[in-house]
Design a protein around this nucleic acid. Structure first.
Length: 465
RNA sequence: GUCCCGUUCGUCUAGGGGUCUAGGACACCGCCCUUUCACGGCGGCAACACGGGUUCAAAUCCCGUACGGGACGCCA
């Protein structure tokens, strides 16, 4: 049997990080088993629907590089089929029309609450005849859930879960306006799409029992279920806006790599022994449903950052510079990217995100037009004196390499600063980069070249003398 | 309120009755390296929620308590 998994997002306008992980797990499971990964947009709520919202989700999947094996299906487009099933159930006597008004329902809800009942609907129309129908009321269709006994779900993550049937109500499968509800639509679509494994958030665990009522009524085979615990914020409470970035879009904008994202999300709730760095090919090879944690995981930005730094360091130089392109304030010139390429080793070590990479590399694009506080301190009279003396030293260099620049500066340090290289390096750093923190400065000077370096030194002298 | 699920270092986790004085990773702290900030190397701190069982033996099995989370829509 070929495994078929699916990712069924509702178009809310953004892709939650938790949804991204669910998508990843489904994708991995499909890849691991040589199965298919399908996407279905749960767009039956027409009031909230928008084309852009769908696109956001698809873009999220694309960015995460989770490819799917179908044209994304629209649940709304399948509504005729859902309605047919509802009518079939009605004809078979496994569902019935309920003519309750919203007011009646409210009253039942109040009553049930007061009595501490598990469900509110009292099934008053379950056995009534259609001829009792009040005029002018459009009925909903409710499914007949079992009245007693219990139901067991063998969940791949949660294990055996049993629920008493009296906890279940005769839920609505077709609304009074004739549209199908989610509870019906998922089941019909999953069945029609041949979904074999439903891997989703455990906020759906309770729904599983309701959905199984539909499977049973239709006599369909149920899929294998795996309910993943939810992702919480760093403080252990539900991941919300105040915890920071919630959507994959935001992580992309902060300069995280899709590969790092995948690795992080995978390890959040799943493990493979002591392995931490799990590139995608390994993830596909190793992934299974056996090592999923049952308790919710707290999101940890520091660990994500650490993983991101790792994948940045591993990235091929040209690809890295190209990925960082959107993060530069300035247009990335050829000469600038050439310089970055030369200095890539230093740049990589210093960047946890693409955004940071762009900041670290910015001085390769153009001379500083401002100097930070630390830089200013190094451009005092002592510093300026050093700069004045560096110019002829640089000019005298026939071969400008990191080593030759450093050797020359060492010599200069011996002559005027008791051999303290820092006294030479720091003012140079300030002049070249506008900061007191930067990649190795003698290498940077060599990469910038003799003319550019001297020009920047002169500029700094002008600015501070 | 009813039902369902969970609980190992600050965080993600390893662990399937003895090999656990509980391992790894991130974070944190210290030392080394060093022209800055980083990188790196080495070392350190730090956990089985609590209470009862079962057993020769329990982080591992059972029960209860506490605390967290989830579900109870003509939303998905």
């Amino acid at each position: 049997m070929t495994v078929v998994t699916r990712f069924p997002p509702s178009p809310t306008g953004f892709m939650h990080i938790g949804n991204a992980r669910t998508a990843l797990f489904n994708w991995l499971y499909a890849k691991n088993t040589g199965g298919k990964f399908l996407v279905r947009i749960e767009d039956t709520d027409r009031e909230r629907y928008s084309e852009e919202a769908v696109q956001v989700i698809l873009n999220g999947l694309e960015w995460l590089e989770l490819d799917y094996d179908n044209e994304p299906e629209s649940q709304f487009a399948n509504r005729r089929r859902h309605i047919d099933i509802a009518n079939e159930l009605l004809a078979k006597g496994m569902a019935y029309k309920c003519y309750c008004t919203p007011e009646e329902l409210d009253a039942m809800r109040e009553k049930a609450k007061a009595e501490g009942l598990p469900t509110y609907y009292d099934r008053r129309w379950r056995d009534k005849d259609d001829s009792d129908a009040p005029a002018g009321v459009d009925p909903v269709i409710r499914i007949k859930a079992p009245l007693d006994g219990s139901m067991i779900v063998e969940d791949e993550v949660q294990g055996k879960v049993e629920v008493q049937n009296k906890q279940l109500d005769d839920f609505i499968i077709l609304r009074s306006d004739g549209t199908p509800t989610y509870m019906l639509a998922v089941v019909v679509d999953d069945h029609d799409m041949g979904v074999t494994h439903v891997i989703r958030g455990d906020d759906h665990l309770n729904n599983t029992f309701r959905q199984n009522v539909v499977y049973d009524a239709m006599g369909w085979d149920k899929p294998t279920y795996a309910h993943l615990p939810l992702i919480h914020g760093p403080d252990g409470s539900k991941f919300s806006k105040r915890h920071g970035a919630q959507s994959v879009e935001e992580y992309r904008e902060m300069g995280y790599l899709p590969e790092a994202m995948r690795n992080y999300l995978l390890r959040l709730g799943w493990s493979h022994g002591d392995d931490e760095i799990i590139p995608t090919d390994k993830a596909v090879e190793w992934f299974n449903l056996d090592h999923i944690q049952k308790s919710p995981a707290n999101f940890d930005f520091a660990k994500l950052e650490n993983l991101n730094a790792h994948y940045i360091a591993e990235m091929e130089a040209n690809a890295l510079i190209d990925s960082a392109r959107p993060f530069f304030d300035e247009e990335l010139t050829n000469i600038a990217s050439q310089r970055m390429l030369e200095g890539i080793g230093e740049l990589k070590k210093r960047s946890k995100t693409l955004l940071q990479f762009a900041e670290e590399a910015a001085f390769y694009i153009k001379a500083p037009d401002s100097y930070n506080e630390g830089a200013q301190k190094n451009l005092d009279t002592d510093g300026l004196e050093v700069l004045e003396k560096i110019i002829p030293v640089l000019e005298g260099l026939s071969d400008v390499t990191p080593d030759s620049v450093m050797d020359a500066c060492k010599t200069l340090a011996g002559e005027i600063r008791d051999g303290k290289l820092g006294k030479i390096g720091m003012p140079l750093r300030a002049a070249l980069t506008g900061s007191d923190k930067s990649p190795a400065i003698f290498e940077a000077a060599a990469i910038l070249g003799k003319d550019e370096s001297i020009a920047r030194i002169q500029k700094a002298i002008q600015a501070f003398k």
